[in-house]
Amino acid sequence: MLNAFKTFAASATIIAASTLALAAHATDVTGAGSSFVYPVVSKWSATYAEKTGNRINYQSIGSGGGIAQIKAGTVDFGATDMPLDEATLQQFGLGQFPDVIGGIVPALNVEGIAPGKLVLDGPTLAGIYLGKIATWNDAAIAALNPGTKLPAAKITVVHRSDGSGTTFNFSNYLSKVSPEWKAKAGEGSAIQWPVGIGGKGNQGVAAYVKQVKNSIGYVEYAYALQNSIGYARMKNAAGKVVAPTMATFQAAADTADWKNARNFNLLMTNAPGADAWPITATSWVVMYKQPRNAANAKVALDFFKWSYEHGQEQARSLDYVPLPDSLVKQIESYWAAEFKR
């Protein structure tokens, strides 16, 4: 008891003597951006704070906001679902690296079709979202599902009404597999949808898919699980039919060509692996290479290093996929080469 008091008195003196000591003891790091990573970052930061005493305050204000905030220098790190290009990174002296991986799944509510029963491929999915494939018994869907009895019902397309990284990756995938989609709709966090209704957030899309019969939407994997809605299996780039699982998301991350991606500027959609889920996404942390507040930046990097090494279980519990080891190694050498620590 007395000892504890002595320590307290001693530390109080140090604090009084120098505020720098306080800063070194418990650092408050702020980050802002992508809502996609918010659940896992906030879970990580709670555990990290228990372990180290350093707090990571992450505000889920959207990727666009995150980029704006880091450019303005008001936060220690930004998080975005869309990687920044070489020119922007150079101009602001920023570096970026991925933090966690997630899968996007086509969710559907079609009478008589059990979850995971229906198979779709990229061009068919693009055809549905273009409004060209308008009924469930269309020849294109039937060809992928021999033996499945498809209803003659009209397809109701559900998309996101808010700008989101989920939409960015989904539309990026459709652009990769369908030239027509690329020409007519393109890719972005918000796009002009040829057909369909818009739900706000993953939750909104999941709710619409559940409410509207014969509908199809796209949501992050966790939302499809939690809302127990039907999902489709996809035929991937290698021509193999895969189901959305942790293993197939992992396979996409493993087979994506990270080695040749400068500044990790690579979207994992339509990954080449035999078992790769075709609509797999990640999110990037954006930081200054020469940060103004070096102490905070150091803690932020330490936090992400810790999350790669010790945060995997928590990520999996929230239906995210941790980064593969080879990618973590590559990120760590990127830090060593690019970031002033």
Binding site: I61, G62, S63, G64, G65, I67, A68, S161, D162, G163, S164, S189, A190, G198, K200
Partner: peptide, 14 residues
């Protein structure tokens, strides 16, 4: 509703 939906992720001209 357009404003409420899209404002969060909108930058620039959007």
């Amino acid at each position: 509703s357009s404003i409420a939906n899209e404002f969060n992720e909108a930058v620039g001209l959007h």
